[in-house]
Simulated assay, not measured.
Amino acid sequence: MNFLSTAALALAMSTDAFAAAVGKGTALQKPRWAEALRTGAIFGVIEALTPLAGWALGLAAVNTVKAWDHWIAFVLLGGLGIHMVLAGLKQELPEAAEDKPNRHSFMRLALTGFATSIDAMAVGVGLAFVDVDILPVAAAIGLATFVMVTLGVMLGRVLGTVVGKRAEILGGVVLFAIGATILYEHLTAL
C-alpha cells in the first residue's frame, strides 16, 4: 500500500470513533485536553491493535469475522448507546453542570473503542491476503484515531454547552446510530 491509500484507510477507520468521541465529550463536564488525550490514546491503541488481531486471525477466521463483525459492532455500540440514553433519562430534569462526570471510566472507553474498531479487525483480516506490511498500516490507523478522537472529545465539549442537559442522551443516540449504520451497510451490501 502506498502512503495515500494508507492515509485514506486510516482516516476511514477513525471516523466512527470520532463520532463516538463527540458523544463522549458532550456527556462530560467541560472535558479538558488531558481527558481528550487520554480518550484519544485509549481509542487509538485499541484501533491500532484490532487490525493486528485481524491479521493474526488470517485465513482461518476470515469468514467468521467478516460474517459477524457488523452484528458484534451493532450489539456493542447499540448496547452502550441504550445504556447512555437510559442513564441520561434517569437524571433529574434540572441537571446541574457539576452533576456531569469529569472523566469516563477506562472500561467504558475501552468498550466503546473496541466496538468502533471491529471494522478495523475485519480490514486486518483482509490485508492478511495481500502483500501488505501490517505494522505501518496499524500504526497509521491508531494515530489517525488518536487525533480524531482527541478532537472529537473537544468538539463534544463545545456541543455539550449548546446541547445542555441531555448530552448523555445525545451521545447514546450517536453510538446507537453508528452501530445501526454499520449493521445496515453490511446487510445491504450482501
Rank of each mutant, 00 (worst) to 15 (best):
A110T: 04
M148Q: 05
L155P: 09
G44A: 07
T112K: 13
L170T: 11
L175G: 11
L77I: 05
E168K: 09
F3C: 08
A140W: 00
M84A: 14
L109S: 08
S5R: 08
A120F: 06
A67Y: 09
A21M: 13
T6E: 02
E92P: 05
K100F: 15
T181L: 11
L28D: 02
E92H: 03
N2H: 15
R166A: 10
V130D: 06
V174L: 14
M84I: 04
M84W: 09
L183H: 02
P136F: 04
Q29G: 09
V158I: 15
A140E: 03
F176A: 15
G152C: 07
G171V: 03
N2W: 10
T112V: 10
A120R: 01
L76N: 13
A167T: 15
A61K: 03
G40H: 00
A21S: 14
T112R: 10
G54E: 00
L4N: 11
I118W: 01
D69P: 01
A177F: 02
V65H: 00
L187C: 03
A115F: 04
T39V: 12
A17H: 05
R38M: 14
A41W: 01
L187M: 13
K165D: 14
V149C: 09
F146P: 00
A41Q: 02
V153F: 04
L77A: 13
